[in-house]
Structures are given as C-alpha cells and as structure tokens.
C-alpha cells in the first residue's frame, strides 16, 4: 500500500502572544509539527504496521521544515519531501502545490489532519479530493482496510457514520482517532541521519485574499467575588447545572 501523509509545520500556538492591538506577535516563535499532522502520521504508521506499505511524508514548507520531517521519520514515515516556498496560510495555494506533486504518484491513501491548529480552515482536504477526483472520507476516527477498500468511521456531530470506499481516497482525521506515539531516542537518532527531499514548489500566491484585520476577540471577565462562600458555591453549582443541560 502506498500511503501519503500531509504534514504541516505551524508556530507553537502555546507560545503565541498578542500585542496591545490584539494582533498576534509572529516574530521568533518556535515552530512545531502540528498536532493534527501528528494524528495523521500516527494513523498512517498504524496502517503500515497492520497492512504493510510505504509512507511518504509531504510538507509544503520552508528550509526550516526539516525538523517536522525528522519528527515524522522518528514516528515511522519512510520518505520525507519538502515542497519549498510556503509563505502564508492559503489552503488553495497549498492544495495546488500538493496536487502538482502527488497527482502522478499513485498513492492509495492520502491522509491529513481535518484542519490545522493555526488557521482551522479545514479546506485543504476537500479541495485536494476535488482536484484529484477521488473520494474524501472526512473527520475519520477509525480506519480499516479490506481488499482494495477503505472502511472508515467518520465522526459527525450527533452520530458516527461508517463508510466504505474503494481506494484511492483522501482521508482527513480527527484528533480523537489516536494518541500519537512519542518517538524514542534511538528512532530520533536514526531520523536525524535520513535524507530529506527538498523540491522548489514555486507557489503562486497572486490570488490570495488581502487580510484587512487579524485581532484576538476581547473577552471581559466578569470577576464576580462572593464574600460568603455558601453563596458562591450555590451560584457555581447553578451555572454548572445549566451548562450540563
């Protein structure tokens, strides 16, 4: 089985701060492998362990994306490719770049996170599926393979759907699908020595929308202080009951 896993490197969202105008301060933030990409890699590696195959990790990134690919290697990805030229978040540009690379590679399964923790657009998977003219199994929390078919459990708001599709397919995974493994020291050491393919993607950003404003919403906390503990407990209990309904 020929599996592609799409890998995104994002800024470390835990360390993101905003300036006085509420705009994100993006300078000098550490980069990390996006959490949903980790779920996608884990899903791919579990498929390989269960059914055999080869995994190609693909990232639209920059020279700095090597650390994300090395982490993917340490988790079990076989071949890593960086399509160089990423400048900003625009899922249509990303989809074009990825499509150009994978269209003639005959992947049976293309796995990616259902969205990424920086932009949360969720656009890449459906656009890629449309470009490839292959089905999309969206928000997967379970994947099995039988013959040439993929049987995926897809999480909807009220219930789950089990869907079977003939390969090739695009699968976007939800975070609930697995707990990504922690690479151990020896895997990290091996990963550091593996070659990474770097290809110039020459993306075309000319149609990108212009961002007029990007600010954090202001939230005023109520800061209600109860001098009498019993009153406070009663109020908290009332609010919790309301929230659980």
């Amino acid at each position: 089985m020929n599996i592609a896993v799409l890998i995104k490197q994002t800024i470390d969202m835990d360390q993101l701060k905003t300036n006085e105008n509420g705009e994100p301060i993006l300078d000098n933030l550490p980069l990390k492998l996006d959490i949903l990409s980790k779920n996608a890699i884990e899903a791919a590696v579990q498929l390989k362990e269960k059914y055999g195959g080869e995994i190609t990790g693909i990232s639209f990134g920059t020279d700095k994306t090597t650390s994300a690919i090395k982490e993917a290697y340490a988790m079990g990805v076989d071949t890593g490719v960086i399509l160089k030229g990423y400048k900003k978040s625009n899922p249509h540009v990303t989809a074009n770049v990825i499509y150009e690379y994978i269209k003639d590679k005959n992947f049976d399964i293309i796995i990616l996170g259902n969205q990424s923790s920086d932009s949360y657009s969720g656009i890449l998977a459906p656009v890629l599926s449309e470009k490839m003219k292959i089905p999309l199994l969206s928000n997967a929390i379970g994947i099995e393979i039988a013959d040439k078919n993929v049987k995926a459990t897809l999480e909807l708001e009220e219930y789950n759907v089990i869907q079977t599709q003939a390969m090739p397919v695009v699968i976007s995974v939800a975070q609930e699908i697995n707990n990504p493994r922690l690479p151990n020291v020896m895997q990290i050491m091996k990963a550091g020595k593996k070659e990474i393919k770097i290809i110039d993607a020459n993306p075309n950003y000319s149609d990108s929308p212009n961002v007029i404003s990007n600010t954090a919403p202001k939230s005023e906390r109520k800061r209600i202080i109860f001098e009498n503990t019993d009153d406070g407990v009663a109020e908290i209990s009332r609010l919790l009951r309301g929230a659980s309904r």
């Binding site: 360390q15 550490p30 990390k32 492998l33 090597t66 650390s67 090395k70 982490e71 340490a74 922690l182 690479p183 151990n184 020291v185 990290i188 050491m189 990963a191 550091g192």
Partner: peptide, 21 residues
C-alpha cells in the same frame, strides 16, 4: 517556562518527546 536556546533539530526532537511524556 521556555527560554532562548540554540539547539539542534535532534535536541529539539528529544525535548519534544520528553515533554510529551
């Protein structure tokens, strides 16, 4: 708490794993 350090990619991966644990 984090602080500026000049680490290699492998050292950062090691830190990622230990932080995950």
């Amino acid at each position: 708490l984090n602080y500026p350090r000049d680490l290699t990619e492998e050292q950062n991966l090691l830190l990622n794993s230990i932080r995950g644990m």
